[in-house]
């Protein structure tokens, strides 16, 4: 059974002028269907304004689709009564690390979700401690969030979601504002949660190096899903990705450029190791 089942979702933003008349309608999500199975790591790629953030908010019942059906863990996300259950099973991490931490001390922030769920006092602490350990932030439990780096704050946010014991975490460009070290730490934490705790991940990003980690990639453009498939299938289509204003991993680009020059090298190269290996094979022939 799939954890998230979306069928023909449509969401429109209506722009109004100062008098409230409709100026124009933007279809942010246009006829999107997708499935996420338990434990799956999904990346949604797309340039800014491609509708990927709007789509993500659906999975957490922060917005409701205008048309189409969305089942989260078997529950209809459009039903008012299901909202809190949906939010508990699908957690969400946002882009700006500063604007999503509510607590004034790290451990209190992580406890915020469980407090809202009405969990017993002792269990809250158990969850807080295990979640902080899971993202490697336990040593900072009594720090003020203001003293942390961006990457650390983002990991605290992830722990805050973990403490609600979700089945899936949606991360909306969680590394866009981080430096390379913070980026790596956050990604490591995400992949570990995915592998160890079998939590489904939906990673929204425009960074191809992050998307490579996923089991499956969806590429969005103008609210529609343009491409879907494994990283290898997606990144072998260099020209198409470039048309969609996206980047391709450097190893894939170099392989692509070599192919254009007539070198017989496979198209689906993703990493440096693969590139070196393919070239060595050619050289030895």
């Amino acid at each position: 059974m799939s954890l998230i089942k979306a069928r023909n979702l449509i969401y429109e933003y209506i722009r109004r002028d100062e008098e409230g008349n409709v100026e124009g309608i933007t279809r942010a999500v246009d006829d999107v269907s997708l499935d996420v199975s338990p434990g799956q790591f999904i990346a949604i790629l797309g340039h800014n304004g491609s509708g990927k953030s709007t789509l993500a908010k659906h999975f957490n019942a922060l917005i409701n689709p205008e048309e189409g059906t969305l089942l989260v863990d078997g529950l209809d996300a459009r039903e008012e009564d299901n909202v809190f259950d949906v939010r508990q099973s699908v957690g969400m991490v946002f882009q700006n690390p500063d604007n999503q931490i509510i607590g004034q001390v790290v451990e209190e922030d992580v406890g915020f979700g469980p407090e809202n769920l009405g969990i017993e006092h002792d269990e809250i602490w158990e969850r807080v401690i295990s979640s902080l350990k899971a993202v490697n932030m336990y040593d900072f439990k009594d720090f003020s969030p203001n003293k942390l780096s961006g990457g650390q704050k983002q990991r605290v946010s992830i722990a805050g979601i973990m403490a609600m014991r979700p089945k899936c975490i949606v991360l909306d460009e969680p590394t866009a504002m981080l430096d390379p070290i913070g980026r790596k730490d956050v990604l490591d934490a995400i992949s570990e949660l995915n592998k160890k705790n079998n939590i489904s991940i939906i990673l929204i990003t425009h960074n191809m190096e992050e998307a490579v980690l996923a089991d499956k990639i969806f590429v969005m453009n103008k609210g529609k899903i343009e491409m879907s498939g494994s990283p290898r299938e997606i990144f072998s289509q260099v020209d198409k990705l470039r048309k969609l204003r996206l980047d391709v991993p450097p190893a894939t680009i170099i392989a692509h450029m070599l192919r254009e020059k007539g070198v017989n090298i496979p198209e689906d190269i993703l990493t440096r190791e693969e590139l070196v290996e393919a070239l060595t094979k050619l050289n030895n022939r």
């Binding site: 390379p180 190893a251 170099i254 440096r272 590139l275 070196v276 070239l279």
Partner: peptide, 20 residues
């Protein structure tokens, strides 16, 4: 120190190790 050289630098280093 947590920085990276460009991809091409690493690639060339790897290739030269392989006898290129």
């Amino acid at each position: 120190i947590g920085l990276k050289a460009p991809f091409a630098s690493y690639l060339m280093a790897d290739l030269s190790k392989k006898g290129f």
